[in-house]
Design a protein around this nucleic acid. Structure first.
Lengths: 352, 352
DNA sequence: CGGAATCATGCATACGTGTGCGCATATGAG
DNA sequence: CTCATATGCGCACACGTATGCATGATTCCG
């Protein structure tokens, strides 16, 4: 290899051979010493460790992968970051992965479909495992991973595909919200959903609807198109346009980001939250806690979710034979100021 | 190597030797054929390509790195994702990197300091280059990269460190905003900043202040602590508490996310935007375009910024000897409904 | 028809690390 | 003093790809 393309910047890399020469031993001895092989004497081990420290040696993760099989890379397939919940999820994944010695390699990010480029990267880099939050076309990913023996864990998504999953008890959480709202005296409900039927949104709709149905009530189902602020805003405008007789007393949106859109639209049209309409969501994103929103919502247990997801992934990285596993974590109702008890008397009262 | 730990999932990997055996040629021939070496005859090349296609061969990026030196990985060091601008930046980087065959490896994400884990990963994985948006402790990263000959490009940050950078013309953009507001008849200004003095925020403050100073005006400088919605909200409450005589006619926040906080606080206290106070920001995040905010702001040229950043990075990956380069891109004023012209007559009018 | 030149391909090795196996030395027992 | 054993370390190779160099086959020209 000519040294012409190396340039001046490429410092002579410190490898096991460098250390071996310096210590007067074989490179294999260095490798064993640094990896704590008991066959190496304590004296030699310490001497080698000292030299390694002095030279600032760092083992090459890529070479190690080639030899050992484990890369320490986990592929990330992320959904629409327009929804802050996924950003929080990403942040938590990055933080927790670091503490476990795993490096997140972004394979995909965004609402659009997974492209061929992603699939190629998944195969080329020896990803030890895959964390998936996007619903769109994730079946391709799961399929490819399954064939290559790469474990997959779905976060916030339950799937019939060959993969494990961790998600919130969407059904139970939405049902609890419905019961809470009924307990506050509400009787006319709107359910705000989207057209894209992710498993998450679907379960939340079902949980809410079923809880109402259990006592013979029904919700007005409204779709905002996409699960976004704009989607919620569009629905909110339709709600605001309703006559006070038709107008729901309480709104449940399948995601906080939609709920915020609903609130903004209602207020823009002079309706007060919660005096005129109670608004609720699901996720508990940071924005929901702002004093201007103070959204009552179902909090997703983000930290435990990610922890459990990485647990599942690591276990399957060590033993690929483990069966798929579905974990459901309970969310908790977080009460804020966007809901209020409605006395029986004011049930027939008009707007304002 | 015992096959016990391979498990049942590890399919026999398709490598160049697999193809070589199948085609009855040497592995080197396969490598050359697939890489378009002109010395291989067209017939052989096509035959090998066919077999590779049939077996679904994908070259191992890690092995290629070990041999060739280039990994195709770029390290990402990201700042606080609480600010949606950085999320948009991330999304754009991921999208554009994919089209250039680069894979983003997340080294750090979040407002907190870069930990040792990050530095280790930077050394262990042979990152071809590094994209940095975080200001906090990025000097360590730049330093380490410099010593190892890894090119660094700072996005949205100008630095005196050994690194190239791409950023918006913060000084000019903020000055333009100041001139625009003065042109609309405003005379009393507030400048909303943060305590952490990132180069970006600093430049915007200077640009705004200097443009005012040029015509003998001054701005009331208010800090919200952190550059976040909450920071802006806190400042907004202080502004709302001022008497109508002291209250600024126009507010410029150094980031959109702060500007939104200011708007929310003002409205919460009964002040109207823009009737009572004009509010402006810098970045043009997606939220700023919401009809409920309609924030007048300086739009950062996100797509060109990322494109230029990757250009710089790629150029230095190929030729590490290139000198550092600083690129400034002009932002553009985006006028929305959060500002309004103030006639001279109403200059002395009170609130409402 | 023979030698040289061109062309297509194979051999060997490097990249950096991990590991099975064999070898040398020291230590113990008989 | 000799043989068996334990200890500590080195040799060689594997992982998958890229590439300098050598080699065989083919062709062209004299």
């Amino acid at each position: 290899m000519p040294s012409s393309d190396l340039g001046l910047a490429a410092q002579d890399r410190v490898t096991v051979v460098t250390i071996a020469r310096r210590a007067g031993v074989a490179s294999s001895t260095v490798s064993r010493a640094l990896n704590g092989d008991p066959r190496i004497s304590a004296a030699t081990r310490e001497r080698i460790a000292a030299i390694a420290m002095e030279l600032g040696y760092m083992p090459d993760a890529l070479a190690r992968t080639l030899s050992g099989g484990r890369s320490g890379l986990i592929g990330l397939v992320l959904g629409p970051v327009e929804n802050p919940f996924y950003v929080a999820l990403l942040q938590e994944v990055v933080a927790q992965a670091a503490t476990r010695g795993l490096r997140p390699l972004i394979l995909h990010l965004g609402a659009q479909a997974v492209e061929a480029e992603t699939m190629r990267a998944l195969q080329q880099y020896r990803v030890d495992g895959c964390l998936v939050t996007s619903a769109q076309l994730s079946s391709d990913i799961a399929d490819l991973c399954g064939r290559r023996g790469v474990p997959v864990v779905m976060l916030n998504r339950v799937t019939r595909l060959r993969a494990s999953s961790v998600s919130c008890d969407n059904l139970g959480g939405a049902a609890e919200m419905a019961r809470f709202l009924m307990g506050e005296g509400h009787r006319r409900f709107a359910l705000v959903g989207a057209d894209t039927t992710s498993s998450t949104a679907l379960e939340r709709e079902q949980g809410f609807t079923q809880a109402l149905a259990a006592v013979g009530l029904e919700a007005l189902r409204l779709s905002g198109g996409t699960s976004s602020w704009m989607g919620g805003f569009a629905v909110g405008e339709r709600i605001a346009a309703l006559s006070s007789a038709e107008r729901p007393e309480a709104v449940f949106a399948v995601s906080d980001i939609m709920a915020l859109g609903v609130m903004d639209a209602l207020r823009r049209h002079g309706l007060r939250v919660p005096e005129d309409v109670s608004v609720t969501g699901f996720d508990d994103i940071a924005e929901a806690a702002r004093p201007t929103y103070a959204l009552t919502t179902v909090s997703q247990p983000l930290v435990p979710m990610v922890r459990r997801g990485l647990d599942l992934l690591l276990a399957r990285m060590q033993d690929p034979g483990l069966p798929d596993e579905v974990t459901l974590l309970r969310g908790s109702l977080t009460l804020r100021a966007s809901t209020r008890a409605r006395s029986v008397a004011e049930g027939c009262r008009g707007q304002r």
